[in-house]
Write a protein that binds this DNA or RNA. Structure first.
Length: 267
DNA sequence: AGTACCACCTGACGGC
DNA sequence: TGCCGTCAGGTGGTAC
């Protein structure tokens, strides 16, 4: 479930491995992840190029090529990156493989084909076309509160709405609401100033902690503080705060996990 | 503007 | 054993 912290880790991984290396070829394992481009177009555009720097906005990872164009990577639900030397280490579900002049390879892996890789000219236009909201970690408190002022509906829906805020999905929104002690269905318009500030603080704390503890790699739940909901995010588990039973409900078409005692419904 | 629902996709899992 | 429905969840489209 690559959300903002996971994609941030992928960004750092790409920065540490694949930057400034000449691309000699690409191998398209599944054209389904290429929407607006084709394997042939992509191969032609990338051959001889290198990625020079990266940018993350929400769940999107953008890589600037040395000719001014940009590669866009979105990971859907199951996407990740793997840098490796020996082709026998090529992961299953490798959908797009970059081959570099140094003999190494970078695989864009995705079991379910819900992600997307593309080639664009202008990152600003790309983000605007998708009507993405500001990145959740790049947003200061004043701007967060300002956006919240015009918002109605369930607080969990707001956190997950990429047009409102970019980067938060189902899993981290549960954690943020748990830490802020807010019921997922609390109407935004019923939150007072103190609650909105708490929500902002919880959002930053959760996203930063997940980044610091190495999101995007297996076993994150074991590395998070035991007081977090994520290690206990399953039906029937005990709330790490009050010992009550973690419950689920349906919100914005997703399954939300929460503690009914710590996160009472506020109306 | 916000919500509900569907589709996309693949693998895991429980029921029978 | 093996078939089948359901679920996982990010996104985008549609209808209301």
């Amino acid at each position: 479930m690559p959300e903002l912290p996971d994609v941030e880790i992928y960004k750092r991984y790409l920065d540490a491995t694949a930057l400034h290396k000449t691309i000699t070829a690409i191998e398209v394992g599944s054209a389904a992840i290429l929407r607006a481009t084709s394997g042939r177009m992509l191969a032609q555009a990338l051959r001889g190029r290198s990625m020079e720097r990266t940018w993350r906005h929400g769940k999107h990872l953008l890589a600037a090529l040395d000719d001014g164009r940009w590669l866009t990577l979105h990971f859907g639900m199951t996407g990740r990156l793997k840098y490796f030397k020996d082709l026998k280490d090529d992961p299953a579900y490798d959908r797009l493989r970059f081959d570099f002049a140094n003999g190494y390879h970078l695989a864009y892996e995705s079991r379910r084909l819900l992600g997307e890789v593309g080639l664009i000219e202008d990152p600003g236009a790309f983000l605007a076309a998708r009507r993405l909201g500001p990145d959740a970690m790049a947003l200061d408190r004043a701007r967060f509160l300002e956006r919240m002022r015009g918002r109605r509906g369930q607080v969990k829906s707001a956190l997950m709405d990429q047009h409102f805020l970019a980067g938060i999905g189902n899993v981290y929104s549960d954690e943020i609401l748990f830490r802020a002690r807010l019921h997922p269905k609390t109407p935004v318009q019923h939150l007072d100033d103190a609650q909105r500030s708490d929500l902002y603080r919880a959002m930053r704390e959760v996203l930063q902690t997940a980044i610091d503890r190495g999101a995007g790699r297996d076993g994150l739940a074991d590395r998070l503080p035991p007081s977090y909901l994520l290690p206990h995010r399953e039906r029937g588990a005990a709330c790490p705060r009050c010992g009550g039973e973690i419950r689920t409900l349906s919100c914005a078409g997703r399954t939300a996990y929460y503690c009914p005692r710590c996160q009472p419904i506020a109306t």
